[in-house]
């Protein structure tokens, strides 16, 4: 069991990945589940029979023509769910990457520079985490305005403190390692040491947290959309919005709600399984169990 941090070439990383998946069955299930859904979201719209904005009769039953029937606007539900995967996953991925980038910059600065930067960043993190995160995202939406693009910003900003805290702890750990001292002794600059020696060795926990955050970001994005703090439920295909629209048209929209919810659930389950597996594999604290 070697960690990927000491592997540099793509082939060795691939071999490590395959060994990891082959002996960690939950992670394999999670990987298959999330990549299947990703594939459907990316390529599904290319092979779909109906466009998500073609109008048919309202509430047509499910059958050969419409796999999951049509909704209150006469749109094909299955087409909307496949397209919705693109929207939901894209928003969740962007917001996760935003959290990751902001959190890594702040956490690395805090841990590496120390002093007043550390104090400032960590008090900021403490303060942000003294609000319930979902409420904070809602307030961010209230400030920015309820639009689909603003969800990226709201969910991304709210997720950043967790990354900052994790990266800082990791940088503090790595900073004391011999190879960093050696690099310093060789006269390398601080920036070079940070980017070439410290950050690459903080990679593992960031990947774990990123995977797990993907799951919670999907739930947050869908949840905010469900509350009406996102896009327009009657035009945008997004899982939370499809669910909201079906919910408002109960019981005729029951099938639509079930399908959209199942899509969210399976995707989040996939990312959580994969993230937990990676954590088992990469986190030295849980590995001994």
């Amino acid at each position: 069991m070697s960690s990927p941090s000491d592997l540099t070439t793509g082939r060795r990383l691939l071999r490590w990945w395959l060994t990891f998946l082959s002996h960690h069955r939950p992670a394999l299930v999670g990987f298959v589940l999330s990549s299947l859904i990703l594939l459907v979201a990316v390529f599904g719209p290319l092979v779909l029979e109906h466009a998500p904005d073609t109008v048919f009769g309202r509430f047509e039953p499910q059958g050969a023509e419409h796999l999951l029937g049509t909704d209150s606007q006469g749109y094909d539900v299955w087409a909307r769910i496949v397209h919705g995967g693109r929207v939901t996953l894209w928003i969740a991925l962007s917001s996760m990457l935003l959290s990751l980038t902001l959190g890594t910059i702040a956490g690395a600065a805090a841990g590496y520079l120390g002093g007043w930067v550390d104090l400032l960043v960590m008090r900021g993190v403490d303060f942000a985490m003294s609000f319930p995160s979902f409420l904070l995202a809602m307030v961010a939406i209230a400030i920015l305005g309820a639009r689909l693009e603003n969800l990226v910003l709201a969910v991304g900003l709210v997720g950043a403190p967790i990354f900052a805290r994790q990266v800082r702890a990791e940088v503090l750990r790595v900073k004391t390692q011999e190879y960093v001292t050696a690099a310093r002794a060789l006269g390398f600059g601080r920036v070079r040491i940070l980017f070439r020696h410290v950050l690459p060795n903080c990679f593992a926990p960031i990947v774990v947290l990123g995977t797990l955050t993907m799951g919670s970001a999907i739930l947050d994005v869908a949840g905010l959309n469900f509350l009406g703090l996102g896009g327009d439920p009657y035009t945008t295909p997004e899982w939370g919005l499809i669910l909201k629209q079906g919910w408002e048209k109960r019981p005729l929209g029951n099938l639509q709600v079930t399908a959209a919810g199942l899509a969210i659930f399976l995707t989040v389950l996939g990312f959580n399984l994969l993230g937990d597996g990676l954590k088992d594999e990469l986190d030295p604290r849980t590995r001994r169990r």
Binding site: L219, G223, G240, V257
Partner: peptide, 18 residues
């Protein structure tokens, strides 16, 4: 436990009602 953290709570509410 895993299913519990992966379920969208608003969908669980729908299922519970159904």
């Amino acid at each position: 436990a895993l299913v519990g953290v992966s379920l969208p709570i608003f969908w669980l509410g729908f299922l519970a009602v159904a």
